[in-house]
Write a protein that binds this DNA or RNA. Structure first.
Lengths: 206, 206
DNA sequence: TACAAATGCAAGTAAGCACTTACATGTGAA
DNA sequence: TTCACATGTAAGTGCTTACTTGCATTTGTA
């Protein structure tokens, strides 16, 4: 029994297969309804192997969270746009990337939202380690845009950043649930960016 | 045994107490983790009484959904503002009411979002019966504002309406989870409305 | 008073759950 | 060859779950 620190590379592979499977089953069935049996089955290993790698179901969940945060922290780093030019273009680029990211992990995010009140420590970890850096760089970009005269004053950029991502997030939840009436995800992002960019732009002096 | 159609008024009262308790326990523990035992305990009745009123747990959940939709459909009707005057004021009034509403039912909504993929029929019902009428009137109000020259052209008002409510909804999720950094819910709504109103306003001609 | 509806109470069922124990099998390195 | 590591297999533990059955008790009504 090796639990938590496998020596051989094949053990590490099994461990990662379990984490991947757990992420999918957790997202599909919910944290509570997901059974260790079904997770092991999805990973193609015996249920006992699951308990040899992780002390219990909670330990597996923690490992899933760590993995989810790590895989998210590595992306979004390819955003080296200028943000000092056309604000609408920059917002559109960021917004599309952001929407694609949250849309890809929609089932998992949905489960996490539903369970956030029941597992505050995991929710906090995701926020702290995964969304905060993305948010910080977005805010910094907005500040750069403001210095370039693209954003008017009198608006808290931290709140504005959360309004923008919240708008995309709320829309993604609606659209992925099939409750968007008469428009596509792309149209939603485009229109949202259109409104938001105009809302941030300095007022035109007559 | 009477199941589903009580004759005496006291039976109806018991049934409603069970529905109220179920709504709370479902929201607190999640649809799957909530047990019939704890629901009956929260309602102050015997567990057997629960099964005498509803065939099974699923039947209770359906009754909860019907009740939630009905109670929501009755509110929000006190919005007889003009919408042809100051757009920002109208949006602020609507936004505050909307935020207060979703904030009050936050645990329940959170659970529903998490479970929407697992119970599509219930999610659809909530959308169709509860959010669609509110959305329709909001859109109609935006159209009235546009006719009054308060909203520029070239923007799909259906998408805009969903962007606005999505923005408030996404912010509510963040704030209620304690992940808002350095601002209150009121500041969030104010800034969101500020940006959104400016984003919808007609461009100032030089 | 008699009756039926509504509830409580005690007990139990069958199934599923997380998790454990004991033992056999395969594999790569010393 | 040997041996520790990794996994599989089989069986079982104790607990909880949704849900049921039978019977006693209250309560409004005719």
């Amino acid at each position: 029994m090796q639990t938590e620190t496998p020596k051989k590379p094949e053990a590490t592979a099994t461990r990662e297969r379990l984490i991947q499977a757990a992420m999918q089953v957790f997202a599909r069935d919910g944290l509570h309804a997901a059974t260790t049996r079904s997770i092991a089955e999805a990973a193609g290993v015996n249920e006992v192997t699951l308990f040899r790698h992780f002390q219990n179901k909670e330990g597996l969940l923690s490992a899933v969270m760590v993995h989810a945060v790590q895989s998210h922290a590595q992306e979004g780093l390819d955003d080296q746009a200028k943000w000092t030019g056309n604000l609408k273009q920059s917002l559109l680029h960021f917004g599309r990337n952001f929407y694609a990211m949250i849309s890809r992990d929609e089932p998992f995010l949905r489960t996490m939202i539903g369970e956030a009140g029941r597992h505050p420590e995991h929710a906090k970890k995701i926020i702290t380690d995964a969304v905060r850096p993305v948010r910080a760089r977005f805010i910094a970009n907005l500040e750069a845009a403001r210095k370039a005269g693209q954003v008017r004053r009198g608006i808290d950029l931290g709140v504005a950043a959360d309004s923008f991502t919240g708008m995309l997030f709320g829309g993604m939840l609606r659209i992925s649930a099939g409750c968007a009436e008469g428009y596509t995800a792309e149209e939603y992002v485009n229109t949202s960016v259109e409104i938001f960019a105009a809302g941030l732009a300095p007022v035109a002096k007559p």
